[in-house]
Design a protein around this nucleic acid. Structure first.
Lengths: 331, 331
DNA sequence: GCCGGCCGTGGTAACGTCAACAATCCGGAG
DNA sequence: CTCCGGATTGTTGACGTTACCACGGCCGGC
């Protein structure tokens, strides 16, 4: 097996052409004679040539690498987004490097790191919106998932409000007088949108909403929030801001002796893989993570390859994808 | 704001030294006068200098980048590993690029891609063990998580068998005559180890195991596997190979009118975030993903920085981390 | 007081690639 | 027959960094 890495020069020598011609073949430039191209390609294959990305990046200033920034990757939604982003990027010939915001102090470092690594652009997952602003003005090409619109970057996301309206309408249509909301954390854009959709649907039906109980997305917070809610009211329909909180809610309802859906109907949001195995199986809103990732990558690459400065066509390609109501037993 | 990227030459000029000295400061070589160093550092700060990774990689042959290979990242275990690996790598100054094996055909391409991107080494998550062999012999420095020992790469993992024994012993100690197993897929090393531990514990207690029911890790497969099991036997104690299958099992038991833990005790494996909100809260084995990721990164970097050929100290640093039994209501 | 050696520093080249330009070859037009 | 233009191919740097070697100055030892 060959000891050293194969460079263009070696391929060139073997094929009896200049390095430049090898370069042209590697980047399939049209200006190469078919016969020559064939010879070069054979030499590449024989030697097992692989272009050196570092050299290419140095020369062109493009690393063919995308960054993904997230507070954490260990949540259901983020990891599914990541999966989809990774595949989309790979299929377009881009590498993907991930940066998490672990410690709070590291937040401003995150984008620095990204730039050091020479990514051509980055995708930011929801919760980091605030700093995306700084980064964008610092000249990094960005696509942000689930963010309020901002002309410094492209925004892609789920239409959370529409989903929340669908959930609420579904419950009202089933005959419930009102719908109680188990909301997500206040600093989350997605949570705010879902809450807004719920309020809008209630308003449209002419009913005044109770103040929502609030959790932090985690299932345990859902349990506790519902416990609190049950101390003051006796809901017949609950719209939880995500499936995990809904799971906690289901347990709290069971603990209080209520049956779902006979006594209380529950709708979640996300359609996590396990939602169909909850007790009872959870009616929920399915987000199309694959489409989101695909769109985000496409938008980012378009922005990169269109070249130009990042302020050229700022919010181009922003899209909201509507979630789909999946009916199961819980409502 | 400065238009172009700041290079060493600019810093050198501003500090009145040669580029070489700037390089020494950037890599904090000891051979530089404190006063000079201070001047250079100030110049760096004023100009906002950031070393160019591509150039460095080209020159040194090291990219300060690690790869992570996984079949998918959208599972609970893998995403938690990823999170931990990402943070460990970042804290040691390495970037992390992820490669998923999406399509089957892409399997052999995955490692090629990794090498193209010039990673210094890679961490492989369990299910991809088979190809790790090829990659390792192809000269890539590897750490594999949850794999049978192999002298071509370092192996780090959870001691699945020990966890399974603990679960089984726990159930036997509670007075159950035998323990039924809800096993994972046959091609998974972790699943095989968990099954082995279960068999060993039963053997030690002198009871002959029933053939395990088998699922694919998913909660729905757990539901169906348990349904099948209930057609032939009436278990009093079940050890499920992971929490998600346990979730499906809980629902199947509820559907069949059995109470947990009164009629049937259930133990899972993983301690996913939601396990405490299952009905009833699930007794399970907690894997220390953070420790795994940390160790894996440490082992890989050690191997990289020790330099030398990859066959030098092959299986160095392999570690098994024992999971911890978390007792909740289900058993 | 001379010499060997260490310390801090600078100069030069090279890593592998690609952009710009120069060179060559061909056929066909004038 | 010469000249022109298009199509292919080659030559020459440069991207930003670091490895290697060389240089001047200072120290202590003889």
């Amino acid at each position: 097996m060959s000891q050293r890495r194969v460079s263009m020069a070696m391929v060139a020598e073997r094929a009896g052409v200049s390095g430049q011609t090898v370069s042209r073949v590697a980047n399939d430039s049209p200006k190469v004679d078919p016969a020559t191209r064939a010879r070069v390609e054979q030499a590449m294959a024989e030697l097992g040539y692989r272009p050196n990305r570092a050299a290419r990046a140095l020369r062109t200033g493009r690393s063919q690498t995308l960054g993904l920034v997230a507070q954490t990757l260990a949540t259901v939604g983020n990891s599914r987004m990541l999966q989809s982003v990774a595949e989309s990027a790979a299929s377009r010939g881009y590498a993907l490097t991930v940066v998490t915001l672990g410690a709070e102090a590291a937040i401003d470092q995150a984008f620095d790191r990204l730039r050091d690594q020479g990514v051509d652009g980055a995708i930011v997952l929801n919760e980091a919106t605030a700093l995306a602003r700084d980064a964008a003005s610092a000249g990094l090409r960005l696509v942000v998932i689930d963010s309020p619109p901002d002309d410094r970057f492209t925004v892609i996301g789920t239409d959370h409000a529409a989903g929340a309206r669908a959930a609420t309408v579904h419950l009202l249509a089933a005959g419930h007088r009102t719908v109680h909301h188990l909301a997500g954390p206040v600093d989350s854009f997605a949570a705010a949108e879902r809450e807004r959709g719920w309020r809008e649907a209630l308003a449209a039906a002419g009913v005044a909403p109770d103040e929502p109980a609030r959790g932090d997305w985690g299932s345990e917070s859902g349990y506790r929030a519902l416990e609190r809610m049950l101390r003051t009211v006796s809901p017949t329909a609950i719209f939880a801001a995500n499936d995990q909180m809904a799971l906690g809610a289901l347990r709290a309802l069971a603990d209080s002796g209520r049956r779902v859906p006979e006594d209380v109907a529950v709708v979640g949001f996300d359609d996590v893989a396990d939602a169909a195995q909850y007790q009872p199986p959870l009616t929920t809103l399915q987000q199309d993570f694959d489409a989101l990732g695909e769109r985000a990558v496409a938008a980012l690459i378009a922005r990169i390859e269109q070249g130009g400065d990042s302020s050229a066509s700022p919010a181009a390609g922003g899209v909201l994808i509507e979630p789909r109501l999946v009916r199961r037993r819980s409502a």
